[in-house]
Write a protein that binds this DNA or RNA. Structure first.
Lengths: 117, 117
DNA sequence: CAGATTGTTATCCATGTGGCTAAGTAACAC
DNA sequence: GTGTTACTTAGCCACATGGATAACAATCTG
């Protein structure tokens, strides 16, 4: 799940790739349809697709000469939960700091760093 | 908010940087404390910090010769919401497709592509 | 079969990224 | 004020990334 996140975030760090994701929320589409709005050569675009696939964000099936591409929503959910978890830990901590500040009221000012080591 | 996401996701696409984020959920810390567990030279580590700061994930204040680093939880929330939105659009669509499939029951099989252009 | 469509593979190139060392600056601590 | 601490800046290097073109392969269509 670690190298996993590497690929996921790297995949999302490009506007072309995010646009593809957004497009795919409208439904599955063949490669050339997906490529059309992006002013670049097909091979370049294929590299982007490949990264989305490697990251597990997208699933593809080739039938005849057409390759259909569809979203893999489970991956979006996974990353969303990772972020949510980090944020919750942080926010819980802020709350505890607030509580501490209230109980101690007048302290020496070192409250910001390592309240409970 | 676009170039914004570029920086955010790029920042998260590195295990060192994600480790720093995770560490910071335990509370703010000075640069060298953050750097200690990562087997690399300080200047290398500073580049990572810089990216986190550019992405708006982290806020730093220098007092004396020490620079304290703290998390900016709003940014985590922002990205989380972006992901959540994409996923919801997709899941709503899946539901609509299911409904469509149920009402039409015996169709010609083209239901997957462009149900409502 | 001939030709057009739709990908795919192989290179190539410029730029960005992640690591390093060396040398500099600005507080502290004594 | 000397020395140590805690960054900071500058410059170097290997490799990844995002783009391109050219040429190939595998379906359809007529």
């Amino acid at each position: 799940m670690d190298n996993n996140l590497d690929h996921f975030f790297a995949a999302m760090a490009d506007p072309t790739r995010r646009a593809v994701i957004a497009r795919l929320t409208q439904g599955a589409a063949p490669v050339s349809d997906l490529a059309a709005p992006h002013d670049m050569a097909l091979p370049s675009f294929l590299k982007h697709l490949k990264k989305l696939e490697t990251a597990g964000l997208v699933r593809t099936i080739k039938t005849g000469r057409v390759r259909m591409v569809a979203l893999e929503p489970a991956k979006l959910a996974e990353a969303e939960h990772w972020l949510s978890r980090q944020r919750r830990i942080w926010e819980d901590r802020l709350e505890r700091l607030d509580a501490l500040a209230l109980t101690l009221e007048a302290d020496d000012g070192t409250t910001e760093r390592r309240p409970d080591p």
